[in-house]
Amino acid sequence: MLNSKIKDEIDHWIHKFPEGKQRSAILSSLHAVQHHNRGYLTTELMNDVADYLDIPKIQVFEVATFYSMFQTKPVGQHEIAVCTNISCMLRGSDNILQHIEKRLNIKAGQSTIDGKIFLKNEEECLAACTGAPMMMLDHHYIENLDIKTVDQILNDLEKNND
């Protein structure tokens, strides 16, 4: 069941759309439930969203599986997404990604065994090309990366026990 906080958030979105067009709130509803479920969606949560919006379950499921920001399998709590598209590649993003993979002992697309970090396989350009190389940590943009900065970020994440 969705808690009242999530329902309020979904209601806020529903009100942006005309009467009967609550399907438009699927993306935002999924963002909300995913956020409150430590970064991923479950079938139960997707069904809850469909019930709350009063729309067929398949409409929610097809959105959840189409967009890259939705995870339909359990992933680590904190998401790191290194942009490796063309502008970042020209400025050394492959070294940054390799360094993180080596240090976390996982490949892009995987999560660490302790469930703390999810290293997203990012294919899309993240629109910060003038700050390349860059990555997102829980959707915060961190630009002009070098190995030292990356290590500092990972150190802080490891120390942090939230």
Partner: peptide
């Protein structure tokens, strides 16, 4: 929610419709 194709205007409208 992360899809390059939604920059195409009719894909964007579909996305806006959920």
């Amino acid at each position: 929610a992360g899809a390059y194709i939604c920059g195409e205007e009719t894909a964007l409208l579909e996305s806006l419709e959920g």
